[in-house]
Design a protein around this nucleic acid. Structure first.
Lengths: 229, 229
DNA sequence: GATTGACTCGTACGGCGTACCATACGAGTC
DNA sequence: GACTCGTATGGTACGCCGTACGAGTCAATC
C-alpha cells in the first residue's frame, strides 16, 4: 500500500481552472531518469540487497507496477544505475599535456573513486554490459596510451591489464571494507594460525589499510612494466 | 540451534555397507561435505541464481530444512562452495626451482583457471571472506616473491597488485564470456558508434578473444614492473 | 523403559519480481 | 459531444524464495 496520502492526490479542488502558478505539490511524473536517480540513492543507502522494486516505488511515491512502464525489469535498473555512476569529466585542466602517465593515473584513480563512492557498483559491474560511460573511459585510455607510444600490438593487452587492475582493486576494496575491529580480528585469527601462514602474518597483509596508497603504488609498477622506456 | 561441528560420525558400524550390491535407493546421509559438493554441481549447472535451498535439498534427496542442521544459512553454502573450489596443489614438480617467476605464473594461472572452471566463483569471490585455500595461495605467493628478492616494503603492494590483476581478469572473463555472435554484435554496435569510440574500434578491443594469451602477457608486464631487476 | 542428543523435515510466514488487467487522461478524429 | 488510441498508473495475484518453529525419528546410554 502506498505509504502516504498527503492529500495532494485527492481531487479536492474546487475548481479545475488552470492555475498559472505551477502546482508543485504532487510528485513529479515518473521518468527513467528519476527512477535511476532514486535507485542510486537507494543503493547508496541500503546496498545491493536493499534495492527492491517495492521500496523503489515507495520512495518515488508510485505504485510498483508503474516502474515497469519505464524500465524493462530489475536488471535494467541495475544496468542504468551502474552506468550513471561512471561518468568521467576528464582531468581538471584539459591542457594538451605531454604527461600521459598523469592522465592515465588520474582517470583510473577517478574510476576507482567513483566506484568506491557507490560501493555496490563494484559488485555489480562484473555482471553487466559495457555502458557508454565505460566505453568512453576505455576510449580515452586507449588514446592516451597510444600517444604515450605503446605499440599497437600491445595495446589491447595494456588496456585489459589496467582494466583488470582497477577492477580487482576496486572490487576487493569495496568488499573487504571491514571495520578496524573486523580487520584486527581477521589478522588475529591469522596470527593464531601463524604456523600455517607465517609470511603473510609477518607482513601484516590484512592490517595494511592504506588502500589508496597501495593502489597508486601498484599502478605505478604496472605502468612501469607497460611503458616502453 | 546452531549446527555444531560434529566431527565424529565415523563411530558408525565398522562395516554395514560391506559388499552386497549397493542398495541403489536410499541416499547416503547428509553431511557438510555432501552439501558443498552438490552445491558446486548445482552452481556449475545453473549459475549463482540457480542455487536455491529447495533445489539443493531436492538434489540431495532431503528436506529443505535438514540442510540447516549442517550449514548456517545460504551465505554459508556460498562461502564453503567457493573455498572448496580454490584448492591449490602446487606446481607439477616441486623442485626447489630458482624460477620464482615461473612459480608465480603457474600459481596465478591455476588460480584463474580454477575460477573459470566454475564461473560463478568469480562473481562470488568479491563478497566473501578469505577462506583457508585463498590464504594458502597468498602465503605461497608472498613466500615466492620474498625469495625472488622483492623488498619487504613493497611486498604488500606486490601481493595486492597480483591479486587485483588476477581478480580483475577472472571476473571480467567470466562475465564477458559472450558467444561469438554476441561479441560480433557488440563490436558492430561499436562500429556504428565509431565516431565516438574510434580508437578502441580500430584496435578491435572487443573482438580479441585470446583471453589466456592476454592474461599471460599482461601478467608478464606486471611482473616486469614488480621485479627489481 | 526413560532419557538424551543428533538429525530430519512439514508447515508457515513474510518478502520478492513481475504477469495480467482495469483504469485514467489528453489528443486527435468524426 | 462521442469515439478511439497512445501513454501512463497501479491493484491484485501467482509462484518462488530464505528460513523460524517445533514435532518427529532413531540409536546410544542409563
Amino acid at each position: 500500500m502506498a505509504a502516504k496520502r498527503s492529500g495532494a492526490r485527492s481531487k479536492r479542488g474546487i475548481n479545475e481552472r488552470l492555475q498559472p502558478v505551477q502546482e508543485p505539490r504532487s510528485e513529479p511524473p515518473l521518468s527513467r531518469e528519476r527512477i535511476v536517480a532514486t535507485a542510486v540513492e537507494l543503493l547508496d543507502a541500503q546496498g545491493v540487497d536493499g534495492l527492491t522494486m517495492r521500496r523503489l516505488a515507495d520512495r518515488l511515491g508510485s505504485g510498483v507496477m508503474s516502474l515497469y512502464w519505464h524500465v524493462d525489469n530489475k536488471e535494467d535498473v541495475f544496468d542504468l544505475a551502474l552506468d550513471s555512476v561512471l561518468e568521467y569529466r576528464g582531468p581538471p585542466q584539459m591542457v594538451e599535456s605531454r604527461d600521459w602517465r598523469g592522465e592515465v593515473v588520474h582517470m583510473l584513480e577517478d574510476w576507482r573513486a567513483s566506484m568506491l563512492r557507490h560501493p555496490w557498483s563494484a559488485s555489480l559491474l562484473p555482471r553487466r554490459a559495457l555502458g557508454p560511460n565505460i566505453l568512453s573511459r576505455l576510449e580515452l585510455l586507449s588514446n592516451t596510451l597510444s600517444r604515450a607510444g605503446v605499440a599497437d600490438a600491445d595495446m589491447n593487452v595494456a588496456i585489459w591489464s589496467l582494466w583488470n587492475y582497477v577492477m580487482g582493486a576496486t572490487i576487493t576494496r569495496a568488499s573487504f571494507d571491514l571495520s578496524d575491529d573486523d580487520r584486527a580480528a581477521a589478522q588475529q585469527r591469522l596470527t593464531r594460525l601463524s604456523d600455517r601462514y607465517p609470511t603473510i602474518e609477518r607482513s601484516r597483509l590484512l592490517l595494511d589499510n592504506d588502500w589508496g596508497g597501495t593502489f597508486r603504488k601498484g599502478l605505478g609498477f604496472l605502468l612501469d612494466g607497460l611503458s616502453p622506456g
